[in-house]
Simulated assay, not measured.
Amino acid sequence: MNQVSYTPDWAYAWSGPLGQCSFKSLPDDFIVEEELPFVPDGEGEHAYINLQKTGENTDWVAGQLARFAGVKRSAVSYAGRKDRHGITRQWFSVWLPGQDSPEWSELNSDVLEVIDATRHGKKLKTGALKGNRFIITLRDVGVSHELLEERLNQIATQGVPNYFGTQRFGHEGVNIDRSLLMFSGSFKAHRNKRSIYLSAARSWLFNQVLSERVGQENWTHYLEGDIPGFQDSGSLILRDHDEDLMARIATGEVSLTAPMWGRGELLSGADCRKMEEEIAARNLLLCEGLEREGLKQERRAIRLVPVSMGWHWLSDDSIKLEFSLPKGCFATAVLREALECIEGRFDENTAK
């Protein structure tokens, strides 16, 4: 079997972390707020509930909503899963045709709080997000204020490699291992887990290509055959690559892209395509497995520039960061370029 050595030591863009810090020491050290691409219109068959959850996963909350509303679990939907370890504010929709909404505030508890409730004509579909706003507190920061702020300014203006976070791959890369076993036919994944393993395999391949480009110091520089695109919309630019486009790439307004593997021809050409094919050849089982599963060739931006990034010091060794990222992007990709974040899981009993 084509083995994958799970060593997530992807190349750093800005010479590596400056020092260490404590990450997720307390629930409110990691706050995520969903940003929808639309405003619910206030009418319709679908109840929209904006919930704040602490120390619980998204599927558990969806089940609570279904039981409270007296509907099947399939009537509840959300745009995306959110990290259990922290405080997240996200939207759910509950299909209630011909029914009034229950008193959602009765759901409030130590771990759930209803922030807003309204109605809308359509269900909330998976992926229907503009992005997420992050409010992150880092503690025990072992680097000077001046040095860290210089790096944060660099990140805010020039961006970071748009890596998928290690959480995508499971503990010690277990999701990659299972995808390999699944593709080899020696492991039958449960239907609910299958998409997780497919996503992990695809994300792994993307990270490998991106790390290669970062190591070659060309992740922000056009290679012959590159396919530019946009980090927020995911749309690609396939027209002639003129001087104006090159200038937009240089400023970060437009990003270069790497493949999200699947069936079909790579859109890239020349030098860019050669590099991508070489990495694919080293990961044939993953590539062939994704193709057999019917996934199609897509591309994703390789540069991530945080939106409206700011920070302030809470004490000599604690700093609070705020920034927004497009959907599907990871705050850990931003943090890793500044500090090595040592995750200290909080005692979830303190959140209840």
Results as ranks from 00 to 15, higher is better:
residue 165 G to W: 14
residue 166 T to F: 14
residue 166 T to C: 14
residue 166 T to M: 13
residue 166 T to D: 15
residue 167 Q to V: 03
residue 168 R to C: 13
residue 169 F to L: 13
residue 170 G to Y: 06
residue 170 G to A: 08
residue 171 H to G: 12
residue 175 N to R: 06
residue 177 D to P: 02
residue 177 D to C: 08
residue 179 S to M: 05
residue 180 L to Y: 05
residue 185 G to Q: 04
residue 186 S to A: 04
residue 191 R to Y: 06
residue 191 R to L: 10
residue 196 I to S: 08
residue 196 I to A: 03
residue 198 L to N: 01
residue 199 S to E: 13
residue 200 A to M: 12
residue 202 R to E: 01
residue 204 W to I: 12
residue 206 F to L: 01
residue 206 F to T: 02
residue 207 N to M: 00
residue 207 N to D: 06
residue 208 Q to S: 07
residue 209 V to C: 11
residue 213 R to I: 00
residue 214 V to R: 02
residue 214 V to L: 00
residue 216 Q to Y: 04
residue 217 E to P: 07
residue 220 T to V: 08
residue 221 H to K: 12
residue 222 Y to W: 11
residue 224 E to P: 10
residue 228 P to F: 02
residue 228 P to G: 04
residue 228 P to Y: 07
residue 231 Q to Y: 05
residue 233 S to T: 15
residue 235 S to Q: 15
residue 235 S to T: 13
residue 235 S to D: 13
residue 237 I to W: 13
residue 237 I to V: 12
residue 237 I to T: 08
residue 238 L to F: 07
residue 238 L to T: 15
residue 239 R to Y: 12
residue 240 D to Q: 12
residue 241 H to V: 09
residue 243 E to A: 13
residue 246 M to L: 15
residue 250 A to P: 07
residue 251 T to I: 10
residue 252 G to P: 04
residue 254 V to Q: 12
residue 255 S to M: 14
residue 257 T to E: 03
residue 258 A to L: 06
residue 258 A to Y: 00
residue 259 P to K: 02
residue 261 W to A: 02
residue 262 G to Q: 13
residue 264 G to L: 04
residue 269 G to N: 09
